[in-house]
Design a protein around this nucleic acid. Structure first.
Lengths: 229, 229
DNA sequence: TTTCGTTTGCGTCAATTTAACGTGAAGTAA
DNA sequence: TTACTTCACGTTAAATTGACGCAAACGAAA
């Protein structure tokens, strides 16, 4: 006779979040300085254990709300991590999600569990606790390949943006140069964006036109090409 | 004071496998007829619970070995599934993996847990238990997009194969027609395959050259284009 | 008012890639 | 030999890409 269903011992299940934000032409990730062991006083990705009644997305929302003060953001599952030694407290499986945030929308606050919560330039990360360096690297890779064919860039920008701002975002994320005029042509031909007819005022030079994201656009209707990945 | 680490109740963790095989110009998936409740006498994906000391891949191997008699196959993580109602026994999180198999390599055997194990044409699946229809559909989608830029097709073929066989595989998986001559050129230009100098003998017509996979080939060195996805 | 430096928006064009199709050689069977 | 099929390699027009040119639109300086 086999054991009854819940007699088996199960690993703990955690959700870890890679929260990307874009500000001042810099791609950043939100890290949290831990107040408790393990990895006390170390920087880590925000995370938390899955409660019995929660879905992954419920847990994501709870972490976002209590640890950083944010809600209602773009979230996508990244990968699940199972290396036996990844958490010194015991066997913990982590489901990684990544979020795309416009930092202007939120006033980040450190929850009571953390010493501090801060944005870090993705090119200048501190040493991270657990296997979070690994999770982070995978998420950045995913983001880089995703923006080439899926219009998610706008999640990181204001509601209205100029083509130049979108172009700068792509160059920043992909860490490469893309010809400005060819980029414009591709984005417009694909109908990635809709011209609002308004212009951004108060700039030094020619006032660029403001666009908004074309919500009817489907995946794979454009393809940005870059030299290397 | 917070609870001690392992006092929290955790959901069970299962691994479910979508095992793809290609035979007689047909893409098939391996299903298992359950001997026990829930979904007794229903067809489902092979799966099993994660043991405390196992990694996901350990669990995959164990399921493959005990439920189907296979080992040493291509495996890749698909996605993790958390819908609260997906398993009638309680809260079970499933990590989906998919496998690519050359059915000629194995003699499939039903383990003691199953009434039967059988290959099903992916276009003619029976009704599946749990949320396995959902898992299967996602995996097929993944396979379809993956073979466009990643040379995994050879995992489903014999060690030596002809360009025509590879071409038929692509048409079968993508369920579309691809121009034979353009396909050949692209595959050869990308150095997807290496000509072995030998030919397949005993055929009705002209004997085609046999190729093997170029193991030095990296991802993204080719890109197959098709009409729709 | 005019000039200057910069950004923006649109265009051009050669090089490359793609899609669609032709054709002759290699094989078996009649 | 002829007939029929698959295989291997070409050809060509169309589409896309990559690398630029340039003039209009702006604020600032002259």
């Amino acid at each position: 006779m086999s054991k009854l269903f819940h007699e088996y011992k199960n690993p703990s299940l955690a959700v870890d979040l890679v929260i990307f934000g874009y500000h001042d032409k810099t791609l950043s990730v939100l890290l949290l300085n831990r107040k408790e062991e393990p990895f006390k006083d170390c920087w880590t990705l925000p995370g938390g254990f899955l409660q019995m009644e929660e879905t992954f997305l419920d847990t994501c929302s709870r972490i976002l709300k209590t640890k950083t003060g944010m809600d209602d953001v773009f979230l996508e599952q990244l990968y699940s991590f199972d290396e036996p030694g990844r958490d010194p407290r015991g066997r913990v499986i982590a489901v990684g999600y990544y979020a795309l945030i416009n930092p202007a929308r939120f006033n980040i606050i450190a929850g009571s569990m953390a010493n501090d919560v801060k944005w870090f330039d993705v090119r200048k990360l501190p040493k991270l606790g657990f296997d979070h360096e690994h999770i982070f690297r995978l998420s950045l890779q995913r983001l880089k390949s995703k923006i080439l064919y899926d219009p998610v860039g706008f999640e990181l920008l204001d509601e209205l943006f100029t083509i130049t701002e979108l172009h700068e975002l792509y160059e920043c994320i992909l860490q490469t140069t893309i010809d400005r005029r060819n980029f414009r042509r591709k984005i417009l031909d694909a109908e990635y964006v809709i011209n609002t007819g308004t212009k951004r005022e108060g700039l030094q030079n020619r006032h660029p036109e403001l666009y908004k994201f074309n919500k009817k656009l489907k995946k794979n209707s454009f393809q940005i090409n870059v030299n290397a990945t």
